[in-house]
Design a protein around this nucleic acid. Structure first.
Lengths: 236, 236
DNA sequence: AACGCGCGCCAACCTGTGTTAGTTTGCCCA
DNA sequence: TGGGCAAACTAACACAGGTTGGCGCGCGTT
């Protein structure tokens, strides 16, 4: 069973088998398990390690003094929490596990070693980073200018592709292990309204969601509903 | 009169005079003028150059098929439109001039040359990029979880610091050459509501805004109103 | 001097989303 | 097998912010 990180990298660049072995090695060292709802990296810390998500979902979030929470990114299996830790000092946000999560802890040196003399890996990490940035832009546009249904439909489309590329979707059916309050914090709404919107997507026959699994019944319809254009996810 | 790009870089790293000369040289070649409301880089293009903003304000934006516009980033004098063009192919968004703008056109090679053997410059560009990313995160949080006044107050605080660091603010007074519809597209609201909110900030004595210039009358008050914490802008 | 026009500004009204306060479902564990 | 609890779900109501439409000012153009 290939690991999701390697699969994703292979979408960006052609990897030699040695490249693949190096990346796979990163994912097999210093494995840690983190309980759901725990922080992987707290706010205001100066982390020395980065983490590669192997299983479960996490998020990058900001917490306001009065308790409001904004989820600014979702981290799925195969995602690197911070590919370039070695440049950064203080965290201006936190990283939290939304479900129980398995991670591999990686040091800056290990990333440096993996890149050295392996241009494919370097290029792959770059593209990964550019894709992440493109997702950020799309989220700003989404929260700023898409309606509730459009936002939710768009997010589902994004997750569908990201999980597919990590080898974790089964055709048009994908894991969706987060709660409605989590979705709400990611989309800038309330859980009540997420629930309403979900119902509307369901009754219009676009998706089905039960027991933590989303099934897209009408992919084209869902994409249209969310004004989804996959171009932003394809840095090639 | 020093250029805003060099000033900003000097906030990130200590530059040798030769570093400074190199960076300054970049800002003096291939100068172009772009009229207000024109695209600097259209959508779907595969740009070969990047642009350094020398004067005027621009934005990174996404346009929806039905005409809605989302501004996902503001580009101020001293900002590089895309510090790492050489990795990216197709634009998933556009870059537009909000006011008349002066830019220096820069090739990937020039950036490569500037970095080679000059670690301070490389480090500075990294920090610049990390700051940009941090701003993206903050915008997502803002549009997702801040109220209208909080958002506007927060944006003003952000711009105050960014312009100060570029050497373009006069104490607590700063240029604000954008229209209310522009602010609306950046904050995910309508221009009518921006107007209402502006009035509220004005009548509560926090800011004054006239003839394209913002004066912050009560900086602490404004920061509090916007839940502004400058930490995210300081990657040190 | 007159015109046009983008922009700031405002009022009245409307609606999408938030708030509050539940009931129901489903799952884990004793 | 049942008790406890978190999450899903719903209804009624409230309100922040959107929509529409209109006025007037400042400024550039002729």
């Amino acid at each position: 069973m290939e690991n999701p990180f390697v699969r994703k990298m292979e979408r960006h660049v052609r990897l030699a088998s040695e490249d693949r072995a190096i990346l796979d090695g990163l994912a097999r060292q210093h494995i840690r398990h983190i309980a759901g709802r725990q922080d992987i990296e707290g706010p205001h810390t100066e982390p020395y390690h980065t983490h590669l998500i192997l299983d479960g979902w996490a998020c990058r979030y900001k917490q306001f003094p009065d308790g409001r929470r904004a989820i600014v990114a979702l981290l799925l299996p195969g995602d690197l929490c911070d590919p370039f830790v070695f440049r950064r000092a203080r965290m201006d946000h936190a990283i939290g596990a939304l479900t129980p999560v398995t991670v591999a802890r990686i040091t800056p040196d290990q990333i440096g070693d993996a890149i050295r003399g392996r241009p494919a890996i370097e290029e792959g990490l770059w593209r990964e980073m550019l894709t992440t940035t493109a997702i950020h832009r799309e989220w700003i546009a989404s929260v700023g200018r898409r309606s509730a249904i459009e936002r939710l439909a768009h997010l589902f489309c994004e997750l569908h592709l990201r999980l597919t590329w990590a080898g974790l979707a089964d055709g048009t059916s994908l894991p969706m292990p987060v709660t409605q309050p989590d979705l709400a914090d990611a989309l800038g709404q309330t859980s009540v309204h997420i629930n309403r919107t979900l119902k509307e997507l369901r009754t219009s026959g676009l998706v089905a969601l039960r027991s933590r699994r989303l099934t897209i019944r009408d992919l084209d319809g869902l994409r249209e509903r969310g004004l989804f254009d996959p171009a932003y996810l394809l840095p090639a």
